[in-house]
């Protein structure tokens, strides 16, 4: 699970560098007259861009350091897992598996048990589909970002956009959170920090689906590699707002396939995160999770159950408010972060 695999059109950067005004207009006309679907490019025409891996450089203190393990008394382990928001059921399962593994290998010491737990968590959390889906060749890649209020959607978008731009991608942001006061301005700040383009609503409270549509149109016209659409925070039990999300999705798909639907989860969230993941997956077919605010004291253990039950991989983690404070999810790092180094 390295950094981000990212395919982009060959020589496109060079083309753009010499691109002059008329050409852009021309391409726009062409697109308008044709069915507005971006060219599907065969892999040979694509160059692979390997973006550097980002580590969870700070934060993330181990929770297990303060307890003593004992093969006879693993209830304490269960308690620690519960306190990391794994949930009762998952915690019980993990403990019984650790027990079984310890019995099999004859592990007794604390360090051996920690090793078993780290290995178990790593193995269960590891997935082959944990990197962003940015290699289909159908550009621009569309990333739709969804989640409840205050989870950290806009901040995550800002960081991700900056990272992609640093890697040489052209990024357009769509401010489809037309509801919350100053949400558009907040995204605009991130757009200028990261050097991305932004499509804003023409009026306050405009239909977010319309903004999403325009963003796709603009991103196609300006030759973006990636476009990221911000949406308003919505609680998953608000049917009307969830329907709106479905509409945004459908409107985007009229023009382009969506590469990635990122559900932003606040790691401080408890068991309700499971309900969130279920509900958002139902309306928006979530393809990945961005786990934010991991630099605090919360551990986000609920993602274990979410990955397990809903089969949705965690892809990104956020560890601060700075533009570089994020990384790609790495099961081993996460497990070691929880259990602590031996």
């Amino acid at each position: 699970m390295a950094g981000l695999k990212f395919w982009r059109k060959k020589d496109q950067a060079a083309d753009q560098a010499v691109a002059v005004e008329p050409e852009v207009i021309e391409s726009k006309e062409v697109l308008e007259t044709q069915i507005p679907v971006a060219d599907v490019i065969t892999p040979q025409e694509l160059v692979k861009v390997e973006l550097p891996k980002r580590n969870l450089s700070k934060g993330f203190k181990a929770v297990f350091s303060r307890i003593k393990f004992d093969v006879e008394n693993l209830e304490e382990l269960e308690d620690v897992l519960i306190q990391a928001d794994f949930g009762v059921t998952a915690s019980e399962t993990i403990v019984s598996e650790v027990k079984a593994m310890a019995k099999k290998s004859g592990a007794k010491t604390e360090s051996e048990l920690k090793g078993i737990l780290t290995e178990l968590l790593t193995q269960k959390l590891s997935r082959t589909d944990a990197s962003l889906n940015l290699d289909s060749g159908t550009q621009p890649y569309v990333i739709l970002v969804v989640g409840v209020n205050g989870a950290g959607k806009t901040t995550t978008i800002g960081k991700l956009a900056n990272y992609l731009v640093e890697g040489g991608a052209k990024v357009t942001l769509g401010a489809a959170d037309t509801f919350r006061a100053a949400a558009v301005e907040q995204l605009e700040t991130w757009a200028s920090r990261s050097g991305s383009e932004i499509v804003k609503p023409v009026s306050e409270g405009q239909d977010p689906a319309a903004v999403a549509y325009e963003t796709v149109e603009r991103a196609i016209a300006n030759g973006s590699d990636v476009l990221i659409i911000d949406t308003a925070g919505r609680l998953q039990n608000k049917q009307g707002l969830m329907d709106e999300l479905g509409k945004i999705r459908r409107v985007i798909e009229k023009q382009l396939p969506i590469s990635e639907v990122l559900l932003v989860l606040d790691s401080t969230t408890g068991q309700n995160a499971m309900t969130q993941a279920k509900a958002f997956t139902e309306v928006a077919s979530v393809t990945g999770i961005a786990l934010t605010k991991l630099d605090g004291s919360a551990k986000g253990g609920i993602v274990y159950a979410i990955q397990d039950q809903l089969n949705i991989p965690v892809k990104l983690v956020g560890v601060g408010e700075g533009i570089n404070d994020f990384g790609f999810f790495d099961a081993k790092e996460f497990a070691i972060g929880l259990v602590g180094e031996n």
Binding site: I82, Q83, A84, D85, V148, G150, D266, T268, T269, G270, Q271, N272, A273, G296, S297, A298, K299, I302
Partner: peptide, 15 residues
């Protein structure tokens, strides 16, 4: 405090 917060509520509240 967000009513969705999990186990960390105690740590945060104490802090």
């Amino acid at each position: 405090i967000d009513s969705m917060i999990g186990q960390d509520a105690v740590n945060v509240a104490k802090a």
